[in-house]
């Protein structure tokens, strides 16, 4: 029997260790229609999630479209207003801050976006794009401003002469570098990377992943890496959270998650990833998750995964499982966690 420690998620032992802590975070979008709505309908994009991020680590958040991973990123970034819960950054609940205080604190969290074509204003020169955060927060002026922008270009591996150009003159990879330079300008502590490489060509993806790893070391950055591409997440993350329909279903170190997942969804997700080695194609057993993801506007009762779970039992339909520490440092929300979950490779 798996030892289950009844405890509300990862309770911090040393509070200061956590750069970011998210408690009971919820985001419901009102989708009721008409004037005389008897009943409110909500799309539960993020539904009561808890996690923490340690200083200097990379937390990967994976899941399929509609699981709420990007919404989570936007909530931490304060781009969306949360419905409920706390987002505690460096020990301060961002929800309690207002005005100038919030603006200052928020500058320490930055974001790298998915689409390098829409994340840069086509009407602004590269210099102005990278200088904007510095000007907005009155960090530097004049000659110093120019020098800082040039240094940022150096850091992300772009030529200084590019400062005078417009975004459309660059390739996807170069644009992503510009976006990274902008995110670094305010010397943030936490960077939320929302699918930063999924829009790039394969050979460019690795350049950006390597650049991000290099910058993390150089500037002691902490990353939240949101992606649906599991190989990239595995490569860059220290710990990984798996989301399904607005819930975190599993969260642990990447080794544990990729080798011995405890949640059936994680197992199916890993098994679904094609392995780039033809020698393994016939040796591998694939656990196919059937069906589509249900709508977050109308999630299934009980465990939200029960409609697609190969191991579902009656309890799963009625009772919602809590995220619990099933094994040391390995949290899972499942009534019947896998005893010995299959990792990526399931030998036949």
């Amino acid at each position: 029997m798996v030892q289950i420690v009844e405890e509300k998620n990862n309770k911090p032992t040393e509070q200061e260790e956590y750069l970011l802590e998210v408690k009971g975070l919820k985001k419901y979008f009102d989708i009721s229609e008409g004037w005389f709505k008897k009943e409110k309908h909500y799309l539960r994009a993020v539904d009561n999630i808890d996690f923490f991020v340690k200083q200097g680590e990379t937390l990967g958040i994976v899941g399929e479209s509609g699981c709420g991973k990007s919404t989570t990123g936007n909530l931490i970034m304060q781009l969306l207003d949360k419905t409920e819960g706390e987002i505690i950054f460096e020990g301060v609940d961002l929800g309690t801050l207002k005005g100038e205080e919030l603006r200052k604190k928020r500058a320490e969290i930055q974001m790298i976006f998915q689409d390098p074509y829409s994340s840069l204003n086509p009407r602004m020169r590269v210099f102005d794009i990278i200088a904007e955060p510095l000007i907005t927060h009155h960090v530097v002026k004049g000659k110093d401003l120019q020098n800082q922008v040039y240094e940022l270009l150096d850091v992300v591996g772009l030529d200084r002469s590019y400062a005078r150009r417009y975004p459309h003159e660059f390739s996807g990879g170069q644009r992503q570098r510009i976006g990274i330079a902008r995110a670094l300008a305010l010397k943030p502590k936490l960077i939320i990377c929302d699918e930063p490489v999924s829009a790039l060509d394969v050979s460019i993806q690795s350049q950006i992943l390597n650049l991000m790893a290099k910058l993390q070391k150089e500037f002691q950055l902490t990353y939240i890496f949101i992606a649906h591409g599991l190989p990239a997440v595995k490569h860059i993350s220290d710990r990984v959270a798996v989301m399904y329909l607005g819930k975190i279903v599993e969260i642990t170190t990447k080794e544990k998650l990729f080798d011995h997942p405890l949640h059936p969804y994680t197992e199916g997700l890993l098994s679904a990833v094609p392995i780039a080695d033809p020698e393994l194609r016939d040796k591998k057993h694939r656990i196919l998750i059937e069906g589509d993801m249900p709508s977050p506007a109308n999630p299934p009762s009980g465990c939200r995964f029960h409609t697609r779970c190969p191991y579902a039992q009656d309890t799963c339909k009625s009772e919602e499982p809590k995220l619990m520490e099933a094994k040391p440092d390995h949290f899972v929300a499942c009534h019947f966690p896998l005893k010995e979950g299959h990792g990526v490779l399931i030998e036949k």
Binding site: G173, V202, S206, L209, P231, K234, H235, I275
Partner: peptide, 24 residues
């Protein structure tokens, strides 16, 4: 070779990915 080496693989773990310099 560059393409194969620069792809992160789900069944392996590497410290650093090889990459192909420059752009297409």
């Amino acid at each position: 070779k560059g393409l194969l080496d620069s792809t992160p693989k789900i069944h392996e773990l590497k410290d650093e990915l090889q990459s192909i310099e420059g752009t297409v």
